[in-house]
Structures are given as structure tokens and as C-alpha cells.
């Protein structure tokens, strides 16, 4: 467990330092700002899909909270 935590800490700090060298200026964001480029560009679809897979499989969540809220699993 400690090794897991250490690994996660290293991964996060590595990502953050890598992140600091990435990115664009505000005037370069017109494509990123398009609605279809939102990470969850169709939340209703995502929620319907998550509910189906929650009821058919042993995994859930990841994108957001795994949750419960259903007697289907």
C-alpha cells in the first residue's frame, strides 16, 4: 500500500511538472473550446451508458464517482 501511495505521488508530481511545459495561449484555444471537445461532451449519453454498464459489469466510475443508487447491481 505504501509503495502504491509513493507511486501515485511520483506519478502526480511527474505529471504536474510535465503539465507545466504544455499548454497554449488563450488566442490559440478556438478548437479546444468547441463543445464537442469538452471531455464529457454529452453528459446525458455518458450517464445512460454508465447506468447500463453499472448494471451489467462489476466495474463502475472512473470518469466520475462510481456511485450506486440502483438495486440492479
Amino acid at each position: 500500500m505504501t509503495i502504491h501511495k509513493l507511486g501515485i505521488a511520483i506519478a502526480i508530481s511527474g505529471l504536474l511538472s510535465a503539465c507545466s511545459s504544455m499548454g497554449v495561449d488563450p488566442w490559440q484555444r478556438q478548437n479546444l473550446a468547441k463543445p464537442e471537445m469538452a471531455l464529457d461532451s454529452s453528459p446525458l449519453t455518458s450517464a445512460l451508458d454508465d447506468h447500463i454498464y453499472f448494471s451489467k459489469e462489476a466495474s463502475s466510475g472512473g470518469r466520475s464517482f462510481g456511485g450506486g443508487g440502483c438495486g440492479c447491481n
Partner: peptide, 10 residues
Amino acid sequence: KKNIRLSLAA
């Protein structure tokens, strides 16, 4: 109108 941000990830 597509950005309805109900989820945490959103």
C-alpha cells in the same frame, strides 16, 4: 447548449 455539466468530471 450541449455543455450540461452535471458530473464531477464535467
